[in-house]
C-alpha cells in the first residue's frame, strides 16, 4: 500500500509546492514531519512499554479470561479463523475493551501485541491474514463509548451541553464499524474466490 501512496503523496506535494511558489514552507515541512515522527514515537514508547508489561501480567492471570469470555460471541463472528486460539482471542478482547473505554494509549499497544501473535500463526508472513484485516478495521473504526477528547474540546469552547455529542457519535461509530467489517468480510470472500 505505502509503496505506491507514499511516493505519490511526496511527488505531488513537491510539484504543487514548486508551482504555487510555496517553497519556503515546503522546505520546512520535511523537517517538521520527521520531528513529528520523533514526538509521536517518544510518546508511544512509554505507553507501549507500560501496556505491554501490564498485558503480560493480565495474560498470566484469570482477569483476561473474564474479559474475553464476556465478548467471546462477538469475536467468534468477526474472527472465525481463530477458532479456539485462546491467547490471541484474549489479546483481541483486551484491545477491544481498551478501545470501548476510550483508552487510546492502551488500545494501540494491546492491538499491536495481538497482531504480532497473529503473525506467528500466519501462513504467509508477507501478507495480512483475514483476522489481521478484521483487527485493523476494528481499530480504525474508533469504537469508543465516551468520546472524551471531543467532549473536552467542546467544553473548552463553551458549549452549552458538551456531552450532547455522545448519541450522534454512537450512531456514526456503529455505522462505520458495521460498514467496515461487512466490506472487509465481502472483500475477503471475493479475493478467496479469485485464488481458487
Amino acid at each position: 500500500m505505502l509503496n505506491s501512496i507514499w511516493p505519490i503523496f511526496i511527488i505531488l506535494s513537491i510539484a504543487y509546492g514548486i508551482v504555487s511558489g510555496n517553497l519556503e514552507q515546503l522546505n520546512n515541512s520535511f523537517f517538521d514531519g520527521a520531528q513529528d515522527a520523533v514526538t509521536i514515537t517518544t510518546t508511544l514508547l512509554g505507553s507501549l512499554c507500560l501496556w505491554s508489561g501490564l498485558m503480560s501480567i493480565a495474560e498470566e492471570t484469570s482477569f483476561v479470561k473474564l474479559i474475553s469470555k464476556a465478548i467471546k460471541p462477538l469475536i467468534k463472528i468477526l474472527f472465525p479463523e481463530l477458532k479456539n486460539n485462546n491467547k490471541i482471542t484474549q489479546q483481541i478482547s483486551m484491545n477491544m475493551i481498551a478501545n470501548i473505554l476510550g483508552l487510546g494509549n492502551a488500545a494501540t499497544p494491546l492491538g499491536l501485541k495481538a497482531i504480532s501473535s497473529m503473525q506467528k500463526e500466519n501462513k504467509n508472513k508477507e501478507e495480512l491474514s483475514d483476522s489481521m484485516i478484521m483487527l485493523i478495521v476494528l481499530n480504525t473504526a474508533s469504537l469508543q463509548l465516551i468520546p472524551t477528547t471531543v467532549i473536552a474540546i467542546r467544553s473548552s469552547l463553551g458549549s452549552t451541553n458538551p456531552t450532547s455529542i455522545i448519541f450522534p457519535v454512537w450512531v456514526a461509530t456503529i455505522i462505520a464499524a458495521i460498514v467496515g467489517t461487512i466490506s472487509a468480510k465481502i472483500l475477503i470472500k471475493i479475493t478467496k474466490k479469485k485464488e481458487r
Binding site: 504555487s20 510555496n22 515541512s29 514531519g33 520527521a34 515522527a37 514515537t41
Partner: peptide, 24 residues
C-alpha cells in the same frame, strides 16, 4: 515494537507534512 514502527512513522509524517505545507 516501537523500534519497528519508527521508520514507518518518519516516512509517513514527512509525506503528510508535505501535503499540508505545500498547500496541496
Amino acid at each position: 515494537i516501537t523500534l519497528k514502527i519508527f521508520p514507518t512513522l518518519v516516512g509517513l509524517f514527512v509525506a503528510i507534512s508535505l501535503l499540508r505545507g505545500s498547500g496541496l
